[in-house]
Amino acid sequence: MELTIYLAGEIHSNWRNELKEKAKSLQLPLHFVGPMENHDRSDLIGEEILGEQPNPIFRDEAASNINNLRTELLMKKSDLVIALFGEQYKQWNTAMDASAAISLNKPLILIRPEKLHHPLKELSNKANVTVETVNQALKVLSYIFDTE
């Protein structure tokens, strides 16, 4: 059995690659999908497809429609969602994706540092599992495949 996992969270750090490499080294049967990790392409995809927009608001709207379609499709096809809240970046998209996973009844692992416990307490309460590190999330994934 192979699981498809949607990796929600900021696209500026290396957390996805870290998780993928560790999962591969453990030989876990996992396939990963997620948002467009090329930030410029994500911001400009509306104009890339629809042409130049009249102002930044229209440019953002066009890109958001396409990015939301991508997220919805990939998340619906996923077996599980991992949402990482880091300490460095604003996490509006992560909160939206974690909420969407809950609405879609997708199992959710929330990764957040202890210092974000209070602002994320309601979301954490709705997640299936809340951990503080990528390594802890990986241990949860490993446990799914353990037989003893």
Rank of each mutant, 00 (worst) to 15 (best):
Q136L: 07
H12M: 06
F32M: 03
N125W: 15
E2Q: 14
K22I: 10
Y6R: 01
L123I: 05
P35K: 08
Q136S: 09
K22A: 13
E21C: 13
L74A: 02
K22Y: 15
R59N: 11
K22S: 14
R16N: 04
T94R: 02
K90L: 12
I57D: 13
Q27A: 14
V81F: 01
F58I: 12
I49A: 05
E48A: 12
F85C: 05
Y89H: 07
R112C: 09
A101S: 04
L120E: 02
F32L: 04
W15Y: 02
H12C: 06
D146P: 10
K115G: 09
F32A: 04
L141W: 02
P107M: 02
P54F: 08
D79S: 06
T71G: 05
L30P: 04
I109L: 04
L73V: 15
P29D: 08
T71L: 05
N17L: 10
G46I: 00
E114K: 13
A127N: 03
D40N: 13
L19S: 03
L80H: 03
K115T: 14
R112K: 15
Q91R: 10
E18Q: 15
M75N: 00
T4K: 06
H31K: 15
N38R: 02
P113N: 09
R41L: 05
R41G: 03
T147H: 14
N38M: 01
H117W: 13
S25K: 10
D97G: 07
S99W: 13
E122Q: 14
S25A: 12
D60P: 11
P35L: 12
R41V: 01
G86L: 03
